[in-house]
Design a protein around this nucleic acid. Sequence first.
DNA 1: TATTGTTATACTCTATAACTATA
DNA 2: TATAGTTATAGAGTATAACAATA
Lengths: 172, 172
Amino acid sequence: MTDSAAQLAPLPDFPDLESHVRPDDHQALRLWLRLLSCTNLIENEVRSRLRAQFNTTLPRFDMMAQLDRVPEGLKMSDLSRYMMVTNGNITGITDQLEKEGLVERVKVVNDRRSSLIRLTPAGKKAFAEMAAVHEQWIQTLFSDLPDTDRTTLHGLLGRLKSSIHSQLPSLA
Amino acid sequence: MTDSAAQLAPLPDFPDLESHVRPDDHQALRLWLRLLSCTNLIENEVRSRLRAQFNTTLPRFDMMAQLDRVPEGLKMSDLSRYMMVTNGNITGITDQLEKEGLVERVKVVNDRRSSLIRLTPAGKKAFAEMAAVHEQWIQTLFSDLPDTDRTTLHGLLGRLKSSIHSQLPSLA
DNA sequence: TATTGTTATACTCTATAACTATA
DNA sequence: TATAGTTATAGAGTATAACAATA
């Protein structure tokens, strides 16, 4: 693996937030604008495909993804933390998915305030179908990036994430 | 510069969308979840500070940033492309900023359908103050990442962005 | 016919805060 | 007192689509 990525020719000028970067902008700002452009590019595409092909939204998909990985279910406060949104929003998304029979609230015996949310069999099935297609989208969108570059990127973003969490301890 | 980033110990488990990655998830999906986590982490913080300290929003800030870099102004359709939102939304944000005296619509002679949007002197001043503080936030948030890592990251994200644009030519 | 911008609409996501029921 | 979840509210952002004016 090399550092050649840093020495490549300038990119073509795609129209986005990065378009008006100026020569005197500092490295961190340029990096942030590019990070934001990349993420928005992919996220918008994924949102639009989720809507078109599965009539769902990213938050709904994300919630089902979290639940799919914990078959016994998750408390709403856990979901709230993982999805980084407030409690009331989790109630709203849960209500939608419950009405469609994709998740269920399961009472727990030891604490009558809380319940576990988990996927129903129908929810598991629906999510499995979406997840397979979703993963294929992601594979394809990232497929031009060589394996080593993906690994490097993953590692560097891990450092960035740790560093930011240590600066914003309110989040951890 | 080395590839050491790829060989580091696993990250602490911060509660976010990445929390439930499974051993059999493929590299591209892991990378995408981490990219999304990092961006959301920073973006949420920036949104919240823009709200608290300047009583503004990210789209408003972004629009002023675009305009600040083109003193003669931009057409609304240009802004629409750069900000990757539809035309109606640009009208809405422009209306807000115009009412506050931060931008103005300037008629162009050769095409009476369109006008140029540009910052007013008050808008320039207000943006300059915000931009300086905003850049300081970004500098700080990225400051733990060594210079070489920032450069590598910038380069790799550039490759990713090009690759995605070439897959989604509708955007270019 | 195509393009620029506006308007109207509807929906989702979001935070905040007050509330309840339990612990 | 503190915690889990609900409800109500208000605001922002978004896409879609119909529209007027102009090219």
